[in-house]
């Protein structure tokens, strides 16, 4: 009995020793690679922050509304964005290189999958960012327009515009990523169909009111003139 236990224990120790011999050196190398990558990423981020002025980019980010979309305070700078992107790219490359050191089937699959999905992920992310940005831009445009034109419920109108735009972006991104395409497409059709139906009903009600007014009390020439002439602002 003791002999059996001793054999099991010895085999376990041998396996452990083999694992240690097999995996510790790559683990150390991988750790070193990640540490170096992290150091490099931090250095590059620091340098980019100091070298890149990005005044034109700052202006673009501010005017396009991207800075207030990515950072609620609206103080996001182009240099910070570029340096952040550099940091994460270097770190990601470091991690993938570290994984490659192990040279196993699993790590090879992870690396392969990651590398092949990068273009798709980048495309999907770009579509989403563009969609969210366009949604915010049109949201603001709509709310300002609705207030200036005296439309009812400006905020709801603007929110509806934003939801539609963002949803379209999500559908397109899902298409690009090949992720639940049918579900998103069906939801998109339902949303657009509902919006069209709601618009048609609203238009119908609006036109009915207008026709009733016009048939009941056609505007006198004086009323029409006064409404048009207002005053010259300039």
């Amino acid at each position: 009995m003791i002999l059996v236990l001793q054999q099991i224990f010895e085999k376990t120790l041998a396996r452990l020793a083999q694992h240690l011999v097999t995996y510790v050196p790559p683990l150390i190398v991988a750790g070193t690679i990640i540490a170096v990558a992290w150091l490099l990423a931090v250095t590059v981020r620091w340098m980019v922050l100091r070298v890149v002025k990005g005044a034109a980019l700052d202006r673009f980010l501010g005017e396009s509304g991207l800075s207030s979309m990515l950072d609620r305070s609206g103080r996001l700078r182009g240099a910070a964005l570029i340096s952040g992107a550099c940091y994460w790219i270097i770190l990601a490359i470091g991690i993938l290189t570290a994984l490659d050191v192990f040279d196993t089937t699993l790590t090879s699959r992870i690396i392969e999958a990651t590398v092949f999905s990068v273009p798709k992920l980048v495309t999907g992310l770009a579509i989403l960012v563009a969609g969210f940005w366009l949604g915010q831009y049109l949201n603001r445009s709509t709310i300002i327009w609705a207030v200036n034109e005296g439309m009812p419920y400006p905020r709801r109108l603007a929110a509806a515009v934003r939801i539609v735009v963002v949803f379209v972006a999500i559908v397109v991104a899902a298409e690009a990523l090949d992720f639940a395409r049918e579900v998103f497409f069906a939801a998109f059709i339902i949303l657009i169909g509902s919006a069209a139906l709601a618009s048609a009903i609203a238009l119908g009600f609006g036109l009915r009111g207008t026709f009733e007014k016009r048939i009941g009390h056609p505007p006198s020439p004086e009323e029409g003139e006064r409404e048009r002439s207002l005053w010259s602002h300039l």
Binding site: E63, G65, S68, R75
Partner: peptide, 13 residues
Amino acid sequence: SRMNRGHLLRSLT
């Protein structure tokens, strides 16, 4: 330039 200039100016109305 913390926001789109067109939006800013139109919000002045």
